[in-house]
């Protein structure tokens, strides 16, 4: 049961980047991303500089680049969207490699690609160097309302359990020759989701009982003396 070894996105290490306070890292990430997004798409050199900054931070953190690249695949659906833009956008057209494409679409695609990729890399660097519970403390220190922090704490705690459960159900499905390729398989996926929910709910209830048994009254106690 849920004997996960930490967070799949977290890359264990002891570098300066790992040890920096989480709330600082969140603020830096936010500032960096805002800067990247606010930069006009035509300032090509600026994007090169941003990439260099990320490369330096990643280098200092000693997280392998391949580790980050593998995880940035999450961006792929939007890459596809970006690649389509030059062909479907309107406005004056230009020729690239013999293909007629929209100029504004081309620029938009480039900007989307550059900004999206930089954002993804920056976030993944944070994820790789910060344990989820440190992130929670960081957000708490940044005055995220306590109800949200509480929900998030439980969510982070149970994500491993729920995804583990889901993975086992997937393995069980696929070892019986199932693969999700077309809508006819929806009922199977939907029933899996239902079963997943029941399991998660029952666990939630047991957790609730365990909390009540230790005097929980509906408010998380403030526990000081944490490192």
């Amino acid at each position: 049961m849920g004997a996960g070894h930490g967070h799949k996105l977290h890359y264990h290490g002891h570098s300066v980047v790992h040890r920096a306070p989480a709330h600082l890292k969140i603020l830096v990430l936010l500032g960096f991303t805002v800067l990247v997004v606010a930069t006009p798409g035509e300032w090509y050199a600026a994007f090169g500089a941003y990439l260099l900054v990320i490369a330096v931070v990643v280098g200092v953190s000693r997280v392998p680049a391949t580790y980050l690249l593998k995880r940035s695949l999450i961006e792929v659906p939007f890459l596809a969207f970006a690649l389509l833009l030059p062909f479907v956008a309107h406005g004056p057209r230009t020729d690239v490699l013999g293909l007629s494409v929209s100029e504004s679409g081309l620029l938009a695609a480039w900007a989307l690609l550059a900004k999206g990729t930089l954002g993804v890399l920056a976030s993944l660097t944070l994820a790789a160097t910060t344990e989820p519970h440190e992130l929670l403390h960081g957000l708490e220190r940044l005055r995220l309302p306590s109800q949200l922090v509480q929900i998030m704490a439980f969510m982070v705690r149970y994500l491993d359990v729920v995804t583990g459960e889901m993975q086992r159900m997937k393995v069980a499905r696929e070892s019986r020759g199932f693969s999700a390729r077309d809508p006819r398989q929806w009922p199977v996926l939907a029933r899996s989701a239902g079963a997943l929910f029941i399991r998660s709910y029952e666990r939630g209830e047991r957790v609730h009982l365990a909390m009540l048994s230790r005097g929980y009254t509906g408010r998380m106690p403030r526990i000081e003396g944490r490192p």
Binding site: M1, G2, P132, H133, L136, H137, A153, F154, V156, R157, V161, R203, R206, V207, L209, A210, M211, S213, R214, G215, Y216, T217, P221, R222, I223, G225, R226
Partner: peptide
Amino acid sequence: VVFQDPDDQLFMGTVRADVAFGPAN
């Protein structure tokens, strides 16, 4: 009461916070 599945009983971020939960309540 110690419940059967420790995953039900341990829900905080660190061992310290989990053990402190009861007395803090």
